[in-house]
């Protein structure tokens, strides 16, 4: 039973079609990624899901509710972290969370949430004196303070340094473990690959692919490369005869075998049968980044 169902969503601003035709369903308890180049329609899609915008066509159902008609009920149960939303400079961490907690019927304990997000020693710090990572953690806390069933997080780690980004990822995994379904909008493929159970790739207002990160990589960019330094000369044919292998190249000291499927096992087996030892053996697989480029023709950070 999906918790979010988006069906043939269409949204335009004047002549500009922001979302052309987007459909997907998010299952309870998963981390669902929405990725795509800037301007692909990710944020507009999410804004329609949370009821901030009215779709021009298609349907959105969240926890069985209509985001516009049942807005009041939905807002009790969906926590949202919007892209680039800030707080007043002088507002303190604990004040912000207590204020937001007061909006909900069954909120989480703000003090507990502050500790859980590692802001315990910052509870009386004004917003303007927080670091980027601390602001982001506060923002996540505000999305969670209503004890939501679903948390929608838009560009969660943009502008964070690598350490803060990794800390935030750990946090998201904890949140999911507590039973919250998470929709993550991002243009960091590494983030989507690391966190998401499934990813919808949106480009020019359409879903161009929807699968697990590993599934996307293996169907879109199935090629892998095996590199090694052989202990004895290898005849190319030994390798090219393998059904998994598509090409063999050589550098000064290394053999580079390109192939699909279980190419690593095929290559090591045939080398073993011929008493050749593969030193410095490396397997290079494609990443979600490569799949993204293949699907959209954009670098992810474009």
């Amino acid at each position: 039973m999906p918790v979010i169902e988006v069906t043939k969503l269409h949204k335009r601003y004047g002549d500009l079609v922001a979302v052309d035709d987007v459909s997907f369903a998010v299952e309870a308890g998963e981390i669902f990624g929405v990725v795509g180049p800037n301007g692909a329609g990710k944020t507009t899609t999410v804004e329609c899901v949370v009821g901030l915008r009215v779709p021009d066509g298609g349907g959105v159902s969240v926890l069985g509710l209509d985001p516009r008609r049942d807005a009041a009920r939905l807002r009790q149960r969906v926590g949202v972290q919007l892209q680039e939303s800030q707080l007043p400079d002088r507002l303190r961490v604990a004040e912000a969370l207590q204020l937001y907690a007061s909006f909900y019927r069954d909120p989480a304990d703000p003090a507990g949430l502050i500790d859980k997000l590692g802001l315990g020693d910052k509870r009386n710090t004004a917003y303007k004196n927080l670091s980027g990572g601390q602001k982001q953690r506060l923002s996540i806390a505000m999305a969670l303070v209503g004890n939501p069933k679903i948390a929608i997080l838009d560009e969660l780690t943009t502008g964070l340094d690598p350490q803060a980004r990794r800390d935030t990822w750990g946090l998201i995994e904890q949140v999911r473990a507590s039973g919250v379904t998470i929709v993550l909008v991002t243009h960091f493929m590494e983030e989507a690959e690391r966190l998401c159970d499934r990813v919808a790739v949106i480009d020019r207002g359409r879903v161009v692919a929807l699968d697990s990160p590993a599934g996307l990589v293996s169907t879109v960019v199935p090629e892998q490369r095996v590199r090694f330094r052989p202990s004895a000369p290898v005849d190319d044919r030994l390798l090219t005869d393998l059904p998994e292998v598509t090409a063999v190249h050589r550098t000064a000291s290394q053999v580079v075998v390109t192939g699909t499927g279980d190419v690593l096992h095929a290559v090591t087996s045939v080398l073993a049968r011929n008493q050749i030892i593969a030193a410095d053996l490396r397997l290079e697989q494609s990443t979600l980044d490569d799949a993204f480029v293949e699907l959209t023709g954009h670098r992810p950070a474009d």
Partner: peptide, 12 residues
């Protein structure tokens, strides 16, 4: 700063 927009996503 998106304070109004953020508030619009809450029950307030």
């Amino acid at each position: 700063r998106g304070v109004l927009r953020r508030l619009a996503t809450t029950p307030a």
